[in-house]
Amino acid sequence: MIVFVFNSILLGVGLAMDAFSVSLANGLKEPQMRKVKMIKTAGVFGVFQTGMPLIGWLCVHTIASYFTAFQKAIPWIALILLGYIGGSMLKEGISGEVEEIDDTILDKKTLFIQGIATSIDALSVGFTIASYTWYSALISTVIIGVTTFVICMAGLKLGKIFGLKLADRATIFGGIILIFIGLEIFISNVFM
């Protein structure tokens, strides 16, 4: 149980790094953001990071359950997807090409688009948690969402204070975490 919670938190941390970077930028660009708006903003990121892995899990169990050979490919898919996403994040962070955010004050439409953009990679996590029961997948995705919420609140607060200086490091850190989680899933499912 402790390993399950720890892995879910690590997945949440790794997946939340894009949202953290965006939250830093949002905090910088709207330094007078009220606490209620901060909670709603972090909440949107948390909801998307909860929903996307759950959608991925549902896809695996509704479509892939008909293909037993596909089940054996899941660790490979997790390794490839998380490695690719993590590698892309590393490349972005090292090259300094983190996505720029529009200079306008954050509105609902922009926040919705940011929520989708920062959580689309979380859809692949549904493949990585495919061996979980429905209840375990739900608990794991809620932990991921809560972790994202907390990280995004910190990002908004830090963004208001420090700005974008931390954004590249957050992307690098998130990339490393996702790569290690992909390796852990692959090794524990293929070699053990």
Rank of each mutant, 00 (worst) to 15 (best):
Asp168Tyr: 14
Thr41Leu: 06
Glu30Lys: 06
Leu183Lys: 03
Gly145Phe: 01
Leu10Gly: 05
Ala73Lys: 07
His61Cys: 09
Ile151Glu: 06
Gly46Asp: 08
Ala137Met: 09
Ala78His: 00
Lys29Ala: 07
Ser119Asn: 07
Ile77Ala: 04
Glu100Asp: 05
Asp121Ser: 09
Ala25Trp: 04
Ile143Trp: 06
Lys72Ala: 09
Leu79Asn: 09
Ser131Phe: 15
Leu111Gln: 11
Gly51Thr: 13
Asn7Trp: 00
Thr133Lys: 14
Phe48Thr: 14
Tyr84Trp: 15
Gly93Ile: 14
Val22Ser: 02
Gly83Ser: 03
Val60Thr: 13
Leu178Cys: 06
Tyr135Trp: 09
Lys160Asp: 01
Lys40Met: 05
Ile85Pro: 01
Val146Ile: 15
Ile77His: 04
Met153Phe: 09
Ile105Phe: 09
Thr68Leu: 04
Gly159Thr: 01
Tyr132Leu: 10
Gly93Phe: 14
Glu97Gly: 13
Glu92Phe: 12
Ile139Cys: 10
Phe149His: 05
Gly115Ser: 03
Ile139Ser: 10
Leu138Gln: 11
Lys165Thr: 11
Thr128Leu: 06
Val3Lys: 06
Val142Asp: 04
Gly159Asp: 01
Asp18Pro: 06
Leu15Ala: 12
Gly175Ala: 05
Thr50His: 07
Ile177Arg: 04
Ile143Val: 07
Leu11Ile: 12
Asp168Gln: 13
Gly115Leu: 09
Gly145Asn: 02
Ala42Gly: 06
Ala154Gln: 12
Glu184Leu: 10
Val36Trp: 12
Ile176Val: 02
Lys109Val: 01
Thr133Arg: 14
Ala78Phe: 03
Glu92Asp: 12
Leu183Arg: 07
Ala154Met: 15
Ala167Trp: 11
Val5Thr: 05
Gly86Arg: 14
Gln32Met: 13
Thr133Met: 13
Gly46Cys: 12
Leu10Phe: 04
Ala154Cys: 14
Cys152Pro: 03
Tyr66Arg: 08
Val146Ser: 09
Gly56Asn: 00
Glu30Leu: 04
Gln32Asn: 13
Ser136Gly: 12
Phe186Val: 05
Asp107Cys: 01
Met38Asp: 05
Ala137Cys: 08
His61Tyr: 11
Asp102Arg: 09
Ile80Asn: 04
Pro53Thr: 08
Val22Leu: 03
Val125Glu: 03
Lys37Ser: 04
Met33Trp: 15
Lys40Tyr: 07
Ile39Asn: 02
Phe48Asp: 07
Gly93Cys: 12
Ala78Leu: 05
Glu184Ser: 09
Ile39Lys: 05
Trp134Ser: 11
Val3Ile: 04
Gly87His: 10
Leu164Gln: 06
Pro53Asn: 09
Lys157Gly: 08
Ile9Leu: 03
Met33Ile: 15
Thr104His: 15
Gly87Lys: 10
Trp76His: 11
Val150Pro: 00
Leu156Val: 02
Ser188Gly: 15
